[in-house]
Every structure is written in structure tokens, then in C-alpha cells.
Design a protein around this nucleic acid. Sequence first.
DNA 1: GATGAATGAGGTTTCATTCAT
DNA 2: TATGAATGAAACCTCATTCAT
Lengths: 193, 193, 193, 193
Amino acid sequence: MTDQTIEQDKQQLIFAATLAVISERGFHDSPVSVIAKRSGVSPGTIYHYFENKDDLIHALFWKIETAFAAALMAGDPQAEPWPDHLEHIWLNAFAFYVAHPEETLFLEQYKNSPYQKDAFILPDSDEIHRLMALIEADQQNGVMQRLPIEVLHELTLGVAVRLAKRQIAGAIDLDQSELANIARSCVRAVAVG
Amino acid sequence: MTDQTIEQDKQQLIFAATLAVISERGFHDSPVSVIAKRSGVSPGTIYHYFENKDDLIHALFWKIETAFAAALMAGDPQAEPWPDHLEHIWLNAFAFYVAHPEETLFLEQYKNSPYQKDAFILPDSDEIHRLMALIEADQQNGVMQRLPIEVLHELTLGVAVRLAKRQIAGAIDLDQSELANIARSCVRAVAVG
Amino acid sequence: MTDQTIEQDKQQLIFAATLAVISERGFHDSPVSVIAKRSGVSPGTIYHYFENKDDLIHALFWKIETAFAAALMAGDPQAEPWPDHLEHIWLNAFAFYVAHPEETLFLEQYKNSPYQKDAFILPDSDEIHRLMALIEADQQNGVMQRLPIEVLHELTLGVAVRLAKRQIAGAIDLDQSELANIARSCVRAVAVG
Amino acid sequence: MTDQTIEQDKQQLIFAATLAVISERGFHDSPVSVIAKRSGVSPGTIYHYFENKDDLIHALFWKIETAFAAALMAGDPQAEPWPDHLEHIWLNAFAFYVAHPEETLFLEQYKNSPYQKDAFILPDSDEIHRLMALIEADQQNGVMQRLPIEVLHELTLGVAVRLAKRQIAGAIDLDQSELANIARSCVRAVAVG
DNA sequence: GATGAATGAGGTTTCATTCAT
DNA sequence: TATGAATGAAACCTCATTCAT
């Protein structure tokens, strides 16, 4: 194993522990000492990899956002016609959230805290570029409304996160056909006509 | 002025300061000492009115939720037919959020933190009772889908909060006709057929 | 006892402990926790009276400098003729330093550390004003050289501190007549002719 | 280049970096990690050449003191008669300090910190032996007062350091004739009669 | 009721030092 | 020899809470 991978491993251990602790206990009540213990590294090591606690949290946020973006385009939805591709993406998002409850709780906490001062910033990944291109094409084709990206997001994937949170909490348990219906509703909300 | 009202006044001062500080700085980074200074009362006084900091925050949450519930049924939407009454309620919600940015930021932070361990709990107010009755009637009449209350919420008012947050942040600026369209979309998402 | 004096007392306790600890152990190796224990107050209390550790140290410095300035003019040296008044002041300085070993060690450490970024700044006290007036008069009268204040200081009182430090350390033990001789030498070094 | 000289080089790099960092930032606030980075070597390497941080600092002190002692006797002052030789030495000291500002700041910090527990100890170098012999001869010849070495030092070279520090700080700028005058004053302070 | 000085446990971060490579 | 990641004790400082006034 190379030095590079060892270093990566430590970072990953720290990320994993941070995610676990914060999703369980919240931003407040997640001391570095606890994260260190859970990671199996010393507090000092955390400060070797990250400038400070905020830096760690921001880095974790982007790591998760990037993983989410990748999951979004799984199964090549671009190949499908409207409105199927958008429903597909919606279901991908929901599936990611439900499969990654810790990540979901972390993301929502982050986005609703003053950590998130920036507006709607997306990772600069290949998948996001493809998604944006798809949206633009749909709008060019006159099938999707020309609404601000934030509005499109809240009417579609925004709904997916929150339903996923409810499902993670055990409050609801949507089956495949219910999900398909809801996905269709969300897509219809941004469709023209 | 009676002692009762003086006491009420102090409580209100504390609530207002807590809301202002937390909406600006977040749950972490909102020390009692800062809240006290902003209230114009001493830390000791806060502990006279509230058992501890958590108690204060929970109490503030319920106060805001109750105010929100009241605003929801403003203009007597019950008197209107389906789907107008639901659109009306949606617009009431959006209007409340935009008119109360601090409250909105606080609520969303609270609901996405481990403070909120409870599932979907609503204030036990008259307005909420009327709202629930209205929903039940709509479902009896076969116009609204029989989905779990959490799902109905996320498809309708859940969207309203998040759009309001975007508007508060200055990212978007929806006019009346755009809002009416979105409200209609949300209602359609829970309508039968 | 009034609140004012209680508060003063706590400050004085903290000052005394800081002085003792730093003169014994140096700037490095004088943790707030040790100062707190020595003061008989909690660390938190120190941060109630001082913004931070640097603030405490600067405040202590000025307190000592002011006390020193007062001691300098004891016995009304202005009333005496040249060069007696300057010899008197020199002996006052030496006596203060020897009588206040902790203060002396603290001052010298402070002045030789990057804490002291400012050049030769004197407390704005009555005594210092009288001293400066005296020097100016001596120069007007053509008995004292017109050298920069820093040079005058190093040739006179600067020598006093360092001899006092040697005496405090037990390396030397100057008697009254030796001291008088040295004082006279220092004064002659800044005299005209 | 031999191994010996390589080793010497590393030591010199470490010494130079330590001197630079401490003279800029002070004893406190000069972490080994910073010194290592400035040296271009790793922290581990520093601990290869020095037992610990204190050891490094003490070694640096003696290195500088020795260099200073050598500079003191430059130009063969012994060959000159009293009081010229002492004035010459005084000017050598002043010139060294001004030419080596980092060394001067380091020395003064060191001598005023509890690092310096020892009394007046001089390097055991050839130059110091010659200097001591010269002093003894002057005293034998009845031209220099028989005062403790510490007193002689403070009245002469002690003044030189502190004036040099003022000049380094930019507070004063003494020209050659002013310096000659001051040197003469200092010598007169230890002269007989 | 009201105050705010005082507390001290515990938070974030630093840094001298070690040791596997 | 040389490295620098890793350590963990300890530094500075914060802040929820108490309590004498």
C-alpha cells in the first residue's frame, strides 16, 4: 500500500466518523474529540488533514454533494425521452437519499445552517454538466418551463430529499408505484402546459 | 400594567432576541449571554423564565409554529371550493414565510437538527383542527389523494417554505402569477386524477 | 465593602498572581490555568476582567510602569539643583527596582519581547510630565546634552535597571556610596562639558 | 564535500532559521514546525541535531555569544593605550550589534528570560581571555576602577547593546562623532578619578 | 423578581516530540 | 540520516448555568 493510499485512508476515516457523529448528534454537540475517538485517530491528526473544524465540515459537504451528483445520473437517464429522463433522475435522487441516511441528514443540516451562506452552488462535476445540458435542452424543446433553477429544484428534487427524510425517520414507507406517481407529479409541476 | 403583562413582556423580549440571534448566527454560536444582551435582560432572568436553553428554544419553536398555523387559515379558505381553498392556504403559507424571514430560518434550522426528534407534530390549535377537517373532507369527496399527511405536506407546504427561503435569500423573486401557477401545481400533485 | 472595591480586589488578585507567575516562569510557561490557580479565581473570571491573555499582560505592564513613574519623583527631586536632582531620580529608580524584583523581571522581559512593538512610550502621568519638564529645563540651561530621549534614558536609568537586576540576582551588592558614585557617573555621561 | 561539512551545513541552516523566527516572533510563538519549514529540513532532523528545543536555543545562544566575543577584539585593541583600547572595544560591540540585528534581539530576549538562570557567564574563548587580561592590567595600572565585572559591563557594553537596539528599531541614528562621545562617556564612568 | 460576577467543564486548537519508513 | 505523519497533553478560551446580593 502506498503512502498516498494511507493518507487517503486516514482522511476517509475522519470523514466517515464526522458524518456518523454529526448525523447522530448535530453540528452542535459534535466535538472534535468525539470525532477523533470515533475515527480512531488523535485530535491532532484531524488538524493535520484539515485546517480547522469548519474546513472539515465544508470538505465533507462537497464530498457528499459530489457523490450525490454522480448517483443522480446513474443508469444513463439522458438516453431516455422526456419526461422519462426527469422521472428517472428524481427516482435516482430519492434512492440515493434513502440508501445514505447519514449523508442526507448531514446535507439537510448543513443547508439549513449559517454554514451555507452561498446560494445554490453545485459541484463542478461531469454529471452536473450533463444534467444542466439536459434541462436546457428540455427548455429549448418547449417541454420544461423556463423557471429559475432554484424553483425547478424545489419543485422536483427538493421534494425528493424531504420525502426521503421522512422515510428514513420511519414515518412513511413509499412503495415503487407510489414513488413513481409522486415522481410524475413533480415532473408535471415543471412541465409546460 | 399588571405584573402578568410585565412578565409577558420580558418573555417576549427574550423570544425576540433569541429569534434574531439564532436566525443570524445559527444554533451553534448563539450563546445565552448574547441573547441576554440583545434582550436587554440579564442571563439570570432568562433562567427565571425558562428552565434551560433547550427549553427556551423549544418554547420559541412552538410559539412560531402556532403563529404560523393561525396565519395559514387567514381569509377563511374553508369557505372556498376545492381546489381554491388549498391554493389559498398554500399562498397564505408562502406569504407568512416571506413576511417572517427570521422565523422561517429558525424553523428550518430547528426541523433539520436533532432538536427535532419528534415526527411531524402540529400545534393543537383551532386552525390546525380546521385544516385537518378540511383535508379529511377533501379526501372523503374523492378530490384529494389518500396519502400520508407527511407526503401531502411535502408536496404542498413543504415546497412553499423552501421557495420562500430562496426568496428571502434574494435568489428568486416570484410575482403573483408565478406564485399562483406554482400553488396550482402543488395542489395538482395531491389531487386525484 | 462596595461592589466597586470587590471588583478591584479581583483584578488586583489576578494582577498579583500574573506578576508572580511570569516573573518566576517567564512569558512562555505561564499558562492562564496556573495564573488562575495562583489568583484563587477560576480561568473564566480572568476572561471576565480581561479580553484575553495579551490584554492582561499589557494592562499589567502599564500598571507597573505607572507605579514606577510615581516612585521616580518621590522626595521631590525638582526642588534640588542640577546635578543633584538627576542623581536623586537615578537613585529612586534603582531603589524601586530593587524593592520590586518581580516587577523588574516582568518589565525587562516585556520590553525585550515582541509584546513591545512600540518605541519608548511613557505613561501619561503627572510625574512623567514633571520629569520631562525638568529635562527640558536642564537642556535650556545648557547643563544637559541635547540627545534623543532614548539615548539619555539608556545612559542613565537604563543602567539603573540592569544593575538592579544584577543585585536582585545576588550577583552584586552595591552599598550607598558605590551607588552614589555610579549615579554620578551616569549623570556626568549626559552632562555638557 | 565531506559528511562532516554536510552535517555542519544542516546545523547552520537550523541555527539561521531559529534565529530568524525567534527574532521576528519571540520565544513564545516560535514552534519547531515553523523553524523546520524555514530551515528547509524536517522537524525530525532538528531532533537529530539537538536533544530538544531548549538545547537548540542554548546552543544558538553560545554560538552567537562566541561570534560576539570574536568581534569584540577585532582591530587588535590591546595594542592601543588606555583609554583608547576600551573605546575601541565599545565601538566594536556597538558595530557588531547594529550589523547583527537578529542576533541582538535574540540575545536580549534570551538574557531577560528564565532561560538565563546562570549569572554572567562568558564564552571560554581566546578573545575573552585577552579582554579579561586587559581589564586586569588596566586595574593594576590604576586607571580602571575595581568594580565587579557585572558593574563594569553594565556601565560600558551594556549601554552599547541597548543603544544598538534603539538604532535597530529606527528610533535613533547615531553618527560616528556622537558614538565616539558616548563611548568616551562610558569609559569615563569606569575610569579612576 | 432581577442581576451579573463567578464558575469550571469542556470546546477548539497548538505543538514538542516520536517513530515507522 | 532524514522524513513528516501521528500523537496527546496541554494551551487558550467559551459558555450554560448558578447564586449571593
